[in-house]
């Protein structure tokens, strides 16, 4: 848990500092925040041992609706 937070803190600090220095438009921050937030939440959940249903399950469900996957 702490390791995950530390790694993310380093990554975000490193990137955001660069963005601020180069004065990036808001959309860059938005997309960046979107990816990082998702990653952070998921990895925290994983670190806590609670694996949320992942893309594999979604895809399986979708394919089952179409009835292709056995």
């Amino acid at each position: 848990m702490i390791m995950v937070l530390a790694v993310f803190a380093i990554l975000i600090f490193y990137d955001v500092r660069k963005f601020i220095r180069t004065k990036e438009p808001v959309k860059v921050f938005a997309i960046y925040a979107c990816f990082m937030a998702t990653s952070l939440i998921v990895s925290l959940l994983l670190a806590a041992g609670r694996k949320p249903p992942g893309p594999t399950q979604w895809i399986e469900a979708i394919l089952n609706i179409f009835g292709v996957a056995s």
Binding site: F8, L11, Y14, D15, K18, F19, E24, V28, I31, Y32, F35, M36, T38, S39, V42, S43, L46
Partner: peptide
């Protein structure tokens, strides 16, 4: 600018 974020997401 976005490779870092995307790669992080990929890893997770």
């Amino acid at each position: 600018k976005l490779t870092g974020a995307i790669s992080t997401f990929c890893v997770v």
